[in-house]
Simulated assay, not measured.
Amino acid sequence: MILLKLLLWIPTIIISINILVLFIECLSALWFKNKDNGDNQAVNTDYRLIIPAHNEASCLGKTLESLVTQVNQPEQILVIADNCTDATAVIAREYGVTVVERFNTEKRGKGYALAYGLQQLEANPPEVVLFFDADCLVGENTVKELTQKAIATGKPIQALYLMEKPEQPTPKDTISAFAFLVKNWVRPLGLTTLGLPCLLTGTGMAFPWGVINQVSLDHGNIVEDMQLGIDVALAGYPPLFLPTAKVIGILPQKEQISTQQRKRWEHGHLQTIITQVPTLIKGAMTQLSFPLLSLALELSVPPLSLLVMFWGLTLILTVGGGLLLGIWLPALVLILAGLLLFIAIITAWAKFAQKEIPLKSLILIPVYLLSKVTIYFNFLGKRESQWVKTQRD
């Protein structure tokens, strides 16, 4: 009987904690108040931008156009043309930026390219280094705001990174953009309101040189940004969120490309949960650090679609336990958790997504969940473990 009770209670407690974390973050985001970041102050800081680019000829130009007007000299932008077989390096040089070509077929991936870029700066290191992907548009004053915040706090800074829907979005694209918004905007905003650090989300990141120099990027982790955020936090520099600095990416239009991208993101996220949540908890205990504990709780929340799936399956399990064993309390706890999950999702939509995503689109969430079942089953048998570049449309 004890074993059966544990079988009911363990998943109930885990899912309920995940949902409670999400609920607190979404509601806290409602009370965020923007503070003056000193935008009127001149930036005298020595900074450099690194853009890793692997066969990005089709999109690099637009990214550089959004950046060259934000720097004092184009040479402050360093493009690492990484194992390229197209015109990436040629296009980058047309904008007057610094270009270094890297060829190493054994070490493929964004982490290796970023590490190589940092090596190029070691002889004369800047005060701040910023990372941007080659396929995004950088909002006005983003470089300035990130640099100022990194200098003022001495910590890594993450910009708001959102995804635009394709020109002809499918219902799945709309729900995917909403899930991305919750993950990259609503939840970090809630953490910021609570005075807590956030995870890094991939592009639009600034680091004081003394911070980024303490961790290694020379690896092929498929979610290197998430791992980097954990590494700098464990080193004593938990990242902070700056929502006024904005970076925009675009969801792939083609279904196959979109699925490949989601598979890499979500398999990497799940693998990081398994391996790094215990590490963060251990670090929180040894360092007596509440920020590290909060990051462990934040990281432990699975992708929104998987969280909903886990909640539904666990509810079925506990209802079965109630019918067979007469133990109804776990089911009641999950029903309450489900209500909190519903409130969190509706709150996030009403405050942050109502203008872009019609309410009727949320009705299609079950269809979106079904479309991702294969991705999660593949995690059990055909797990994505190596970096694979997302192909362009």
Rank of each mutant, 00 (worst) to 15 (best):
A206C: 08
A206E: 10
F207I: 10
W209N: 14
W209T: 09
G210P: 09
G210E: 13
G210F: 06
G210T: 12
I212W: 01
I212N: 08
Q214V: 05
S216Q: 05
S216V: 11
L217G: 11
L217S: 08
D218L: 11
D218K: 14
H219C: 09
H219N: 15
G220T: 12
G220F: 06
N221Q: 05
I222R: 11
I222N: 09
I222S: 05
V223W: 11
V223E: 11
E224I: 11
E224D: 14
D225P: 02
D225W: 01
D225S: 12
M226F: 09
M226Y: 01
M226W: 01
Q227D: 00
Q227R: 06
Q227K: 07
Q227I: 01
L228F: 07
G229C: 06
G229P: 05
I230E: 02
D231A: 09
V232Y: 03
V232A: 02
L234Y: 06
L234V: 14
L234C: 15
A235P: 07
A235D: 03
A235V: 04
A235Y: 02
A235H: 03
A235T: 01
G236L: 04
G236K: 04
Y237F: 14
P238I: 00
P238Q: 02
P239K: 08
P239M: 00
P239R: 00
L240F: 07
L240Q: 15
F241A: 09
F241Y: 15
L242E: 13
P243S: 00
P243C: 00
T244A: 10
A245G: 03
K246C: 12
V247D: 08
G249D: 14
G249V: 03
I250C: 09
I250Q: 12
I250A: 02
L251V: 08
L251F: 14
L251P: 08
L251Y: 08
Q253E: 13
Q253A: 13
Q253Y: 04
K254V: 13
E255I: 09
E255W: 11
Q256I: 10
I257S: 13
S258Q: 13
S258E: 04
T259A: 07
T259F: 14
T259I: 12
Q260N: 14
Q260H: 07
Q261K: 15
Q261T: 10
Q261V: 07
Q261L: 15
Q261D: 11
